[in-house]
Computed example of a mutant assay.
Amino acid sequence: MKSIPYGRQDVNETDIQAVIEVLRSDWLTQGPAVERFEQAVADYCGAGFAVATCNATAALHLACRALELGPGDMLWTSPNSFVASANCALYCGAAVDFVDIDPRTYNMSVEALEDKLALAEKQGRLPKIVVPVHFAGQACDMRAIRALAERYGFRIIEDASHAIGGSYRGERVGSGRYADITVFSFHPVKLITTGEGGMALTNDSGLARRLHRLRSHGISREPEAMRQAPEGLWYYEQIELGFNYRLTDIQAALGLSQLQRLDGFVERRHELARRYDVLLAGLPVIAPWRHPDAHSAFHLYVIRLRLDTISRTRREVFAALREAGIGVNVHYIPIHTQPYYRQLGFMPGAFPQAEKYYAAAITLPLYPQLRAEEQDRVCSALCEAVA
């Protein structure tokens, strides 16, 4: 029997034709398709500027650099995320710390953040940047986090890698109302895909210019940014040390085509999530909780096993599902428990809510093409696994 993956891209003939058109054009690397994709995403989200990158990790790194994060600075993020949310600080020579999660949303806890900031202020160790992560597509409580930023003076990078197409308090995620920079991911299992790709959005024109420059080796062709008068139309200057984090026109064409179907993808994910809610009712699991202020993009549908009511461990349930051809996954192993971060001094027990969540979490298959009979099969296998 064919395995059901936990996530899968949806590429149709229109997407394929969009890529073919670029392959037949004069531009393959960074050209007009990238600019069109950037403008389309900015317009969709209601943001002033968008800068496409080769992946979301690169966008996080550029965002940190654009906000002048460096040695002696501190970045705080959620332990319940992929390691990139923390690694971006280390790339800049800065230090990392974490803020425990809310037990219902699995996002950064505002209460834990407020308590940690009050203590850090007394110790003279306030963060320069805080990176809230919109886990599974549901936005963090950004209004409250923004209020704390104004009080304590930190900048905000919104890691919305899971959340394009979602909204918070009636505005699209990425609008920039509450964050200095927002980052999206276009990995194949995300809401829309460019194969690999990412994007940084901001309403600050200065940050946008710096993101553009850092993305392409720190080079500028803008006369106003140069140290001397241009020698000719060919002339450019490297203003600072940058990177080659560019997206190609091939990828941008795919992303632009996919963007036209984003709202439909999100609607379909909500349909499937509601159906899961019904099918799983009565089983010893905790279904995802929806915050009333947020409309999730539903990148992931994560359940938590009620381990105190079943005779199997999470490991045994996971293995049983995999053996039944259900491609479940776990999102995420808390970052602070990774060997690399233990070398930096972090230890298990430091962020108990994240660890408690992780111990019981399983990600079920969720993607637009998931059929009702496949979803029934997932739930039947889960019922048998926890029996």
Rank of each mutant, 00 (worst) to 15 (best):
V317L: 06
G174W: 05
T182L: 07
Q260W: 04
C64P: 04
R172S: 11
D15R: 05
A297M: 03
L126C: 12
H217K: 13
C383A: 15
R146E: 01
R210H: 09
V22N: 07
D26T: 14
L207G: 03
A381P: 04
E111Y: 03
A160N: 01
P103K: 10
Q123S: 10
P368M: 02
V378L: 13
V386G: 10
F186N: 04
T337Y: 04
L207H: 03
R146H: 10
V133H: 12
E111H: 09
F186P: 12
L370M: 08
E323W: 05
M347C: 06
G137D: 01
A225C: 09
I286G: 03
P5I: 13
Q343M: 13
L280R: 07
L23R: 08
I362M: 08
A160W: 05
V285F: 02
E222C: 13
L382G: 14
H217M: 15
L211I: 14
Y358Q: 12
S216A: 12
T193S: 13
G31Y: 05
R146S: 06
R275C: 06
F37P: 01
E374I: 02
A359Q: 11
T182G: 05
F82T: 06
K2V: 12
L191R: 02
A33T: 00
T105K: 00
G242T: 10
S109L: 01
R269P: 02
R261P: 02
A179P: 09
V51S: 13
T77C: 13
V11W: 07
S216V: 01
A253E: 06
L233I: 08
V330M: 05
P292M: 10
I303L: 14
G176P: 11
L305T: 07
E267V: 09
A350I: 01
A112T: 06
R209K: 15
I250E: 02
F49D: 07
I219V: 15
L75F: 03
G218I: 09
G174F: 13
H299S: 13
N87D: 05
L259T: 01
A163W: 00
T202V: 02
Q39K: 15
T14R: 15
A144Y: 00
T309Y: 02
H61K: 12
K356A: 14
I303N: 04
A136K: 06
E196P: 03
R312C: 11
L300T: 06
I326N: 00
Y91S: 07
V378N: 13
P284L: 03
A50M: 07
H331Q: 00
H270S: 07
P5S: 10
H291R: 05
G264D: 10
R125G: 09
D100H: 11
Q375I: 09
G166I: 00
W76T: 05
G218F: 10
A136L: 00
Y301V: 02
S78C: 14
A18V: 11
C64E: 08
A229K: 08
F184N: 03
H134P: 00
G197Y: 00
R215M: 14
T53K: 05
H336M: 05
Q369Y: 02
E222T: 03
Q258A: 08
V173I: 15
A320Y: 08
S3Y: 10
G46N: 12
E237G: 15
L90K: 04
P368F: 00
T248W: 03
T14Q: 12
A66E: 05
D249N: 15
